[in-house]
Simulated assay, not measured.
Amino acid sequence: MVSYKEIRASNALLNDATTPRVAVFAGGTSGIGQLTVRALVSTGASVRIHLIGRKSSEERSRIFIQELNAINPKAEIIWVEGEISLLSETKRVCEIIKSKESRIDLLFLTTGYAPFGARNETAEGIEITQSLIYYSRILFIQHLLPLLRLSEAPKIVSVQGGGMERTTVDLEDMDLKKPGNFGLVNTHVQYVAMLSTTMEKLAAENQGVTFIHSCPGWVNTGNVNRGLDASLTIKSWLVWLFLEPLIGLFSFSDEESGQRYLFQSTSAAFGGRGVPWKGKAGVNSQMKTGEDGLFLVTSKCDTTPNAKVMPVLREKAQGKVWEHTQKVLGPYL
């Protein structure tokens, strides 16, 4: 475990020279993304942040941006409206960002929520949580990698379930459309495995870019309710009675969560680039220390290669998942 004291000490070294100067946050209008934006701005460094959100979140995001400007007048926060559960909208947002920037230092991805109810597809025919957790994130990465490669210390941080991969990914029904396949547990197993195996492939092909798939642990973001259908009275009651109190009891504080993700976004502990780190170096998913690759980071900021699972996914799933993913994303690349 990386102690909170060590994390605060590392983050205290951030300044104009060591802070990501240009960052893109998809999912930064709430939850972990918003907490990390606040932590980044609170360093006092000169930063420019593209904050992406839905039309419905624009008003509260405007208030949030005003708060950030008061905290750090040197920070430039650019609001980018987009319904990024739609891949066409994700592409449009990426094109806007690419037209404004010559490089990107940090891409931070937190979109998504737990699907407690039945399948709910977007207008493009993709189940909405899979689009947010997987397809949209990979599309962001593929579009913005050329600008990330121009940074001196580029990082991609995707927050979902790094280190929790299982070998039971369904390669015959990757979008979980068959009757009985879609559900809370199945979707988590499927999307986490697909995300890690695809990010690992992209990391291998983009030496010099640090890829992190992180597990947030217990964080009280409020997103636990987002996937609940209004008709699911019993599930809503159970979440309110049991799950929300548990999250409140065991979760990190907002402050600590933001600081931990700022650390992941800036420390040389992962891949060797960023704020100098004298502690134990992170081990990537191919069990190599101090090298590029994909880092599976636990809620305590440790790394795990998930050594019993990742080699199996690499051998048996990676090619098929990539082929399927490119077929889905092809029209939007």
Results as ranks from 00 to 15, higher is better:
Ala153Arg: 08
Pro154Asp: 04
Ile156Pro: 00
Val157Phe: 01
Val157Pro: 00
Gln160Phe: 13
Gly162Glu: 10
Gly163Asp: 06
Glu165His: 12
Glu165Gln: 14
Glu165Ile: 00
Arg166Thr: 15
Asp170Ile: 12
Leu171Thr: 11
Glu172Cys: 15
Glu172Gln: 14
Asp175Ala: 14
Asp175Tyr: 10
Leu176Asn: 13
Lys177Ile: 01
Lys178Gln: 13
Pro179Cys: 06
Gly180Met: 02
Gly180His: 02
Phe182Thr: 00
Gly183Cys: 08
Leu184Asp: 00
Val185Lys: 15
Val185His: 10
Asn186Met: 09
Thr187Pro: 00
His188Ser: 14
Gln190Trp: 09
Ala193Asp: 11
Met194Lys: 11
Leu195Gly: 06
Leu195Arg: 04
Thr198Asp: 09
Thr198Leu: 07
Thr198Lys: 02
Met199His: 13
Glu200Phe: 01
Lys201Leu: 10
Leu202Pro: 04
Ala204Ile: 03
Ala204His: 07
Ala204Arg: 15
Asn206Gln: 12
Gln207Asn: 09
Gly208Val: 04
Val209Cys: 05
Thr210Cys: 14
Thr210Arg: 09
Ile212Phe: 01
His213Leu: 12
Ser214Asn: 14
Ser214Glu: 15
Pro216Trp: 04
Pro216Cys: 03
Gly217Pro: 05
Val219Thr: 03
Val219Gln: 05
Val219Arg: 07
Thr221Leu: 06
Gly222His: 07
Val224Tyr: 04
Val224Ser: 05
Asn225Met: 06
Leu228Phe: 06
Leu228Glu: 01
Ile234Gln: 07
Trp237Leu: 13
Leu238Cys: 11
Leu241Glu: 05
Phe242Val: 11
Leu243Gly: 06
Glu244Met: 01
Pro245Gly: 05
Ile247Phe: 09
Phe250Val: 05
Ser251Asp: 07
Ser251Glu: 06
Ser251Gly: 13
Ser253Thr: 13
Asp254Pro: 04
Asp254Cys: 05
Asp254Leu: 02
Glu255His: 12
Glu256Leu: 08
Ser257Lys: 00
Ser257Val: 01
Ser257Ala: 15
Ser257His: 01
Arg260Pro: 09
Tyr261Asn: 13
Leu262Cys: 06
Phe263Cys: 03
Phe263Asn: 02
Gln264Met: 11
Thr266Leu: 05
Ala268Lys: 00
Phe270Pro: 02
Phe270Gln: 00
Gly271Val: 04
Arg273Val: 13
Gly274Lys: 04
Val275Ile: 15
Trp277Met: 09
Lys278His: 14
Lys280Phe: 08
Lys280Arg: 15
Lys280Trp: 02
Ala281Pro: 07
Val283His: 07
Ser285Lys: 02
Gln286Thr: 11
Gln286Ile: 10
Met287Thr: 15
Met287His: 15
Lys288Met: 12
Glu291Phe: 10
Glu291His: 13
Glu291Tyr: 11
